[in-house]
Amino acid sequence: MIASILATTARIVAGSTVRWAGCAPTEEQRIYIANHSSHLDFIVLWSHLPPWLRRRTRPVAARDYWERDRLRRYLAAHVFNALLIDRTAAPGTPPGQLGRQAVDQMVEALSAQQSLILFPEGTRGAGEDLASFRSGLFHVCRAKPEVEVVPVYLENLNRILPKGHLLPVPMLSRITFGTPLRLQPDETKDAFLERARQSVRTLREAA
């Protein structure tokens, strides 16, 4: 109920049209990877999945942001079923531990037949070009090579709600789902991450 109201609101505010250009919304287990430039990104992407897919697709999000107040905690836990990962380490944690922990969480979710929404740039950009992808995507795919990676391009959301603003300007946006890719058996980390990044970028040029 709350989920469908939120999804409808998100679609209206973002005035978004959706194109499933390279695949269809199916049961296939997936990691949706998208460009990240606005707070609207994940909720709009999520709102365009059919409700039955939405329920088994978990957005990967930062714990420090989503646990800041009660409302966000509630939404993350009960509406979006978000997979919250830690970005700030407690003093004394060995380097790399946070990353490994996040990868473990994602692999665990995939093992439970869930799909993921992931922003591999790690943080919101200015919306001009895609930053290089973090390595977590590669490690998750190496553990779960059978899972499809679906590139998604979110257009105009950074203009509707840019970084540092609270109120959205109601422009129209467009979401394009591209052709899925998978990690090849002998593919190196850098090659795979760059291929994944290019797959999102091509969608922008096609749009």
């Binding site: 005035g15 919306g127 105009n156 950074n158 203009r159 840019p162 970084k163 300007v169 422009m171």
Partner: peptide, 9 residues
């Protein structure tokens, strides 16, 4: 209209 216009942040 605004959607098509090259505005900046």
């Amino acid at each position: 209209f605004i959607t098509l216009v090259p505005t900046r942040p």
